[in-house]
Computed example of a mutant assay.
Amino acid sequence: MLTEVTATRYVTPLREGGSLPGIVEADDLGTYVMKFTGAGQGRKTLVAEVICGQLGRRLGLRVPELVRMQLDPVIGLSEPDQEVQELLKASGGLNLGMDFLPGSIGFDPLAYGVDSAEAGRVVWFDALINNVDRSWRNPNMLVWHGDLWLIDHGATMIWHHSWPGAAASAAKPYNASDHALAPFRPDIAGAAAALAPLVTRDLLTEVVADVPDEWLVDEPGFDTTHAVRRAYVEALLPRAASIHERITLEAPSRPRPSQAPGWLTDHLGPWPHPTEKSTKGGGQ
């Protein structure tokens, strides 16, 4: 089960996120990026964050630690921004926190090199969870202490928005042509050989068990939260075994110029990316 903390201070919103996440301090003295149940995307976004984030961590990918975060709506009373205040008031109770990585920078494929092995692992993982939000338009990756970290998995497992068609949706291929790591010749076969055997029924069962019950109740078509959890396992398990055969890598839709400043590209461009460092992050 995820560690549970209590939010003690709302610091600032992160307006680049569509759900308006915020930086929040907690009673364990940690600082987190908080994602709210009251955001417009709803609780399924948080369910996806937990399942995919925890699965990624169990597969050895760098994903910031996740925590259950209790929020007292009174925190929003002193917030001057009306939009933020309403979000906080609507999100009382249990929310999701992601370990904040201070000093991290957004990944830019023209400023930071990734070797084919690591690129393959990330692309394979994104294919498994059907992540449509790791493109060059919006990489949702950070560089922190010289390592690549994966964030924002709310736009994954699209099949859980319509369970009657989940089996057909989960069986579909994955087009990685616009993936942020496509230019790095991802070794998908190598990633599949290393990671697919790890995705067992037991592992998936343990991962989905980390989702709080209150985010799964009243799911249409299911009588119990246990049945909902089982549905996630049944969608992901067969996909892990064969998705590498259905990943397509074609020419991207159009080239993307680097958004990084010159001082950064000059410094990071020649780096060979270190892939064997510790995955332990600050505050974890």
Rank of each mutant, 00 (worst) to 15 (best):
T279E: 13
H161K: 01
P274H: 15
L55A: 10
S104A: 15
Y32R: 07
T156D: 04
T31H: 05
E214I: 08
R68L: 14
I247E: 10
W149H: 14
T12N: 06
V5M: 01
R256V: 02
T248G: 15
M69C: 14
R137Y: 06
Q284C: 04
E250Y: 03
K35D: 06
R230K: 13
S169R: 13
D72N: 11
D27K: 10
L236G: 02
V211T: 07
P109H: 15
K172Q: 14
G146R: 08
V47R: 09
A171G: 14
G60N: 12
G17R: 04
R9L: 05
D202F: 01
D115C: 06
L110R: 13
P272C: 11
D115Y: 06
G103K: 11
S169K: 03
M141P: 01
P173Q: 09
Q85N: 14
H145G: 12
I23W: 00
K44R: 15
W124D: 03
R256S: 06
A167W: 03
G281T: 13
I105D: 02
I247A: 12
A192R: 02
E214V: 09
S104T: 03
Y174N: 00
V84R: 10
A39E: 12
A155T: 02
A127N: 03
E49H: 04
P274R: 14
Q41V: 14
V211W: 07
R230W: 06
T6Y: 00
W124K: 05
Y112R: 10
T8A: 06
R229K: 06
P13G: 04
Q82G: 01
P80N: 10
L101M: 12
G60I: 10
G76P: 02
Y32T: 07
H267I: 06
E214N: 02
P212K: 08
G76Y: 07
L216H: 06
D218Q: 15
V122W: 00
R68D: 12
M98E: 12
P109Q: 14
L14H: 08
M141T: 10
A180Q: 04
L77Q: 14
I151C: 05
H273N: 09
G221T: 11
A231N: 04
P261Q: 11
G92Q: 10
A155R: 09
E206C: 04
C52L: 05
A167I: 07
T3V: 12
K44M: 08
D187N: 15
W149F: 10
T3S: 13
E65Y: 07
H145F: 03
L88H: 05
P102Y: 03
T225M: 08
D72F: 01
Y10W: 14
A196K: 08
K35W: 06
S242M: 06
G269T: 09
A192V: 08
A119T: 03
L101G: 01
V228T: 12
G113L: 03
W144Q: 07
S242T: 15
T31S: 07
L204M: 04
G120F: 00
F222C: 07
G146Q: 09
G40L: 12
L142R: 02
S135F: 02
K172L: 15
S104F: 07
A48G: 08
L77S: 09
G42D: 03
S78N: 13
E65A: 15
E4P: 00
H244C: 05
A227E: 15
L195H: 07
K89L: 15
S278Y: 07
G93F: 07
L20N: 10
